[in-house]
């Protein structure tokens, strides 16, 4: 099996002498859509800060492509330039929307023309074309969240991390962001890690689901990554919500837990069963229901 994109081993974090995070082993594969779920105070954000190398663990290691960059300034900067995190309450710099989105490109010293091109593309992806010259301080919450997202995807990260990206947003903005997450994950092949407490969002997005409680992983599941077709896919009624709290386990490895001809969904495309489309034995699968 190939090296995971991100791996955490024996990871511990303490706060005021209390252990708030204790992760034995966690692997996030390249191209995965990974959802970290759990109640408030479960350690989700703490884990995300460690996985994004913005905070140091008290014990244990985090590996990026098999390398632990903590401790080396240059390795850390190089890894940080390959992943990016959008915080729960993203800070929007007190300047124009353009300069906000261009920030990550400017610190990488890209050419002006290229910066303009990438900013335009990112803003169009989040549905904010034409917002370039607006004062970023006058945006609505949903727009600000989308600007933060555009700023993150503008640098074309290998791993995009989102901390509660849709908390406190209205349904239309939630839909925009979830669609964008699917697009980035499937079309661009970006590994996406999302922290959420919304089980419906977990159902809507699917993927590698990590259940966190009191700082430890209590369950890991691989849910089908659905492409919503009907509004009811997006907004299941309360009955489905009740059902969702009782998630069925779909974890498994191809060839051992599942027969080799299982229909596999990868990046949203249902592959026809057959030897030519068969992933290698041991690869994580997302079988359809």
């Amino acid at each position: 099996m190939s090296t995971p994109k991100l791996r955490a081993r024996e990871l511990q974090k303490f706060y005021n002498g209390r252990k708030i995070l204790d992760i034995k082993d966690l692997a996030i594969e390249k191209g995965e859509l990974c959802l970290i779920v759990g109640p408030n105070g479960a350690g989700k954000t703490t884990l995300l800060m460690l996985l994004s190398f913005l905070d140091l663990p008290d014990r244990g290691e985090v590996y990026y492509d098999g390398i632990n960059p903590n401790g080396s300034k240059s390795a850390l900067l190089s890894v940080r330039r390959r992943l990016t995190l959008v915080m729960q309450r993203p800070v929007i710099f007190k300047t124009t929307v353009f300069k906000n989105v261009a920030y990550g490109l400017r610190v990488r010293h890209l050419r002006r023309g290229l910066i303009r091109e990438k900013v335009t593309r990112s803003l169009s992806l989040v549905g904010l074309s034409g917002y370039e010259d607006r004062n970023a301080l006058n945006l609505s919450q949903g727009e600000a969240q989308r600007v933060a997202l555009a700023r993150a995807i503008a640098v074309e990260p290998e791993v995009l991390m989102l901390d509660e990206p849709t908390a406190n947003l209205d349904p239309a903005n939630i839909r925009t962001i979830e669609d964008l997450v699917r697009l980035i994950n499937r079309e661009l092949g970006t590994t996406v890690v999302i922290v959420t407490h919304d089980m419906l969002q977990v159902r809507r997005l699917g993927g590698h689901v990590i259940f966190l409680s009191k700082g430890t992983i209590i369950r890991e599941e691989w849910l089908p990554q659905i492409t919503p077709q009907t509004p009811s896919d997006l907004w299941p009624d309360e009955a489905i919500e009740g059902e969702m709290l009782n998630l069925t386990t779909f974890r498994g490895k191809l060839g051992t837990d599942y027969p080799p001809d299982v229909v596999e969904r990868r990046r949203g495309t249902a592959l026809k069963p057959g030897p030519e489309n068969r992933p290698a034995n041991g690869a994580p699968v997302f079988p359809t229901l």
């Binding site: 913005l54 900067l77 915080m87 993203p90 800070v91 990550g104 610190v107 993150a152 640098v155």
Partner: peptide
């Protein structure tokens, strides 16, 4: 303080 963290997460040295 998140301004600094945001800058770092966007690749700032």
């Amino acid at each position: 303080p998140t301004v600094r963290k945001t800058a770092v997460s966007l690749g700032a040295n």
